[in-house]
Design a protein around this nucleic acid. Structure first.
Ligand SMILES: [Mn+2]
Ligand SMILES: [Mn+2]
Ligand SMILES: [Mn+2]
Ligand SMILES: [Mn+2]
Lengths: 227, 227
DNA sequence: ACAAAATATTAGACATGCCTAATTTATTAT
DNA sequence: ATAATAAATTAGGCATGTCTAATATTTTGT
């Protein structure tokens, strides 16, 4: 049985390792400071918790270097991520929450422990594979759908892409996207890219034109359109 | 902001006061020992918590006598009861849980704090007025439906009654009722009552006959059938 | 290569919530 | 009315999770 704080620490480590895996090479390690920032605590508190989790065999801690998850820790983190994203999906799909309103509540709901609940919820939602922000929902065995996405900033003019996910589901960013009518799953034609500020002009399949700044484009993860 | 433990203590006090109000006269008080039993803790821990809650103005604590809820405490308890019963309803109605499987999970879910979540859930469920055990769900202002129910043991032969609620939703009891096909809302004709053991024979509107022991009958709360 | 800066850990403290054992107060039985 | 019993509180202790300040180690900049 893990406490709420233990679970949150594991999830933070998992998220940071995901990020660094994607940006730098494989096999990076999560830093104490980054974990503390993500959880709004202090580095010293994180060190304490890392020692505790290492003793429980959930992660490997090399003092002054950082941590990696053990198989057990990875599994626990994935179970939490699974619950978080299933609840987010429930809140948006069934209760009519906006995709920018779900994070805090899911942050609480994810800690409810009942396998029957988690699996029933998944079934009730029709086994969704992605959450409202486009992030993949791990299945009950901890398998995560892998997709080859890249930021919209890496696209060239003329490409057709589908918006797969939003990187840092920040509240203000999600509201901006709502206003522009930009949403997960939509397909866009990259019309132009300004040299001056890096802003990008998009046109949806339905003919809707939108311009996004470079800052926004960097947060939009797109995937190639199949056909 | 109340902690989980504070909330659970308030709810225990509320439940005990409800019980004693119904059985004895009005204005009874909840005892330290009863609270401890209900929460599976020790009396000394309860005393600590009662002092804390009294300082916060949530209840009135007269040492060596017992506690009553203040208006603030009553409101907080009712919010918790509301969430508990809404979640139980969700689990049964939407996720297909059995009515004997919901308590533990609802015990966790009730502590998730988000008014938007609670109210959306209520609306999603179609503003249910009773939970799967027949207990009334307080509305967002803390109003609770009052019904005049009595245990089946107080009925006389020949009466027609509707099963309104199950008193102590004990797991084994609920399973027994499931097996006999007895459920909330069903209307029964009281056919006979044995002098020897107090067992009662019932016949449902649909013609299904069931016999229940006195022990079971004492837990079945019934209300008069409207005509 | 070294000093300065950044990052991490340790030491020591505090709040919370729980426990056991000892003590106080209330209830009950004779 | 008093003694025995039950219930409640207090005292003292422990685990958890957090903090600040002091110290250790690594990384960075020149
Ligand atoms: Mn969380
Ligand atoms: Mn998400
Ligand atoms: Mn609870
Ligand atoms: Mn119930």
């Amino acid at each position: 049985m893990l406490t709420r704080s233990e679970e949150d620490h594991l999830k933070a480590v998992y998220a940071l390792l995901q990020h660094s895996d994607q940006e730098n090479g494989r096999n990076r390690t999560a830093s104490t400071k980054a974990i503390a920032e993500r959880l709004s605590t202090k580095a010293s508190s994180v060190t304490d918790m890392l020692k505790k989790l290492a003793e429980k065999g959930l992660l490997k801690h090399v003092p002054y270097y950082g941590v990696k998850l053990s198989a057990k820790g990875q599994a626990a983190a994935l179970r939490l991520v699974r619950k978080h994203r299933l609840w987010e999906t429930f809140l948006v799909e069934r209760l009519g929450f906006g995709w920018n309103e779900v994070h805090e509540v899911a942050e609480q709901l994810e800690h409810v422990s009942s396998d029957k609940l988690t699996n029933s919820l998944e079934e009730y939602l029709g086994h969704p594979r992605f959450d409202p922000h486009g992030d993949p929902i791990p299945d009950r065995d901890g398998n995560v759908q892998v997709r080859s996405t890249r930021p919209l900033t890496r696209c060239v003019v003329g490409e057709r892409v589908r918006l797969a996910a939003v990187k840092g589901p920040n509240d203000a960013l999600l509201q901006l996207l709502d206003q522009k009518g930009i949403g997960i799953g939509m397909v866009y034609h990259v019309r132009s890219r300004q040299v001056f500020d890096g802003s990008i002009e998009l046109r949806s399949k339905e003919g809707q034109e939108s311009t996004v700044s470079e800052q926004v484009a960097a947060q939009l993860l797109v995937e190639p359109v199949r056909p």
